[in-house]
């Protein structure tokens, strides 16, 4: 799949923003006044910035409000609703903390649950697609939620919790990468099943239907740059999991080091999300004899 920068930024930034909102909703850290304002500002900049980035890949962003209509069937529509409701609920909860120094616990818990559900809905946009076997698995929501929780704890300044979550996330991500590698084959699609010609013999693409490229090839048959996937996995793992864990767990706490841990985590998450798209193979490639 084509790793579009707008979608990578959207999933990474809004995942972090909603991840931070989960912890703020739970009252972690227990902040009020100006420090609460700073935490909420960061969370909203990330969440809203990510959502704004997602509109850049739309052909007609001026019609984006129509995406709220199909929540009964579409995960993309559900995500739009959940994101909007979360931001409203958490704004009310945040206003209580910032302006009145009061924690409206129930509202916070509700907001945290909604923020978690928003990230889950984002992941389901990808996990629902049977056409992309690597994504069509429950590990996709697990990884998206893991990144939101790990990154959220890191931004919330929860040193011990963040260190543990990032270590667990690293393990989960490696497991997801490895068991995702065999899923295209396991899903059973072949050039023979795609064309129905398998009972005559082996099928080979002889001539493509068009001499140039087309939307299908550029959007869904992204084969370039996959050759460095293993090295990129190692770099991503080091940056989003191991380095921030080492800084948090092994070194004495300082704000400079914490900032390095945050930047390292975000860079690693961006690379891993790039891989999430670049390594994913769509079954339509079978019609072209490519994956």
């Amino acid at each position: 799949m084509h790793p579009a920068p707008s979608i990578i930024l959207f999933t990474v930034l809004s995942g972090l923003g909603f991840g931070l909102l989960i912890f703020l909703g739970l009252g972690i850290p227990a902040v009020t006044g100006w420090s609460a304002f700073a935490f909420f500002a960061i969370a909203y900049l990330l969440a809203v910035g990510g959502l704004a980035a997602s509109t850049f890949h739309l052909g007609h962003p001026e019609r984006a409000l129509k995406a709220f209509t199909q929540w009964r069937s579409s995960w993309l529509s559900r995500e739009a609703w959940l994101a909007a409701i979360t931001l409203v609920v958490m704004a009310l909860y945040g206003a209580g903390l910032v302006f009145f120094g009061t924690r409206l616990g129930v509202l916070g818990w509700l907001g945290a649950g909604l923020a978690l559900a928003t990230v889950a809905a984002t992941s389901m946009i990808y996990a629902q697609l049977k056409t992309v076997p690597r994504w069509h698995h429950w590990s996709t929501p697990v990884i998206f939620l893991g990144h939101a929780l790990g990154g959220g704890a890191l931004l919330a300044g929860e040193v011990q919790l963040a260190a543990s979550l990032l270590l667990v996330l690293g393990g989960l991500q490696i497991w997801a990468w490895l068991q995702g590698d065999g899923r295209f084959r396991a899903a059973g699609g072949t050039m023979e099943s795609a064309t129905g010609l398998g009972n005559i013999g082996d099928v080979r693409a002889f001539e493509p239907p068009h001499t140039g490229t087309n939307y299908l090839l550029t959007e869904m048959v992204h084969v370039v740059a996959r050759k460095h996937a293993v090295k990129l996995r190692a770099i991503a793992y080091g940056l989003f999991s191991i380095l921030p864990w080492a800084i948090l767990a092994l070194l004495p706490f300082s704000h400079t080091l914490a900032m390095i841990a945050v930047l390292s985590h975000i860079s690693g998450t961006l690379i891993s999300r790039w891989l999430f798209f670049a390594e994913a193979e769509h079954v339509v490639g079978l019609y072209y004899g490519k994956r």
């Binding site: 050039m191 064309t195 010609l197 005559i200 013999g201 082996d202 099928v203 080979r204 693409a205 002889f206 001539e207 493509p208 239907p209 068009h210 019609y287 072209y288």
Partner: peptide
Amino acid sequence: RVHSYEVK
């Protein structure tokens, strides 16, 4: 679109 395949 019309693809062409060789079947062996």
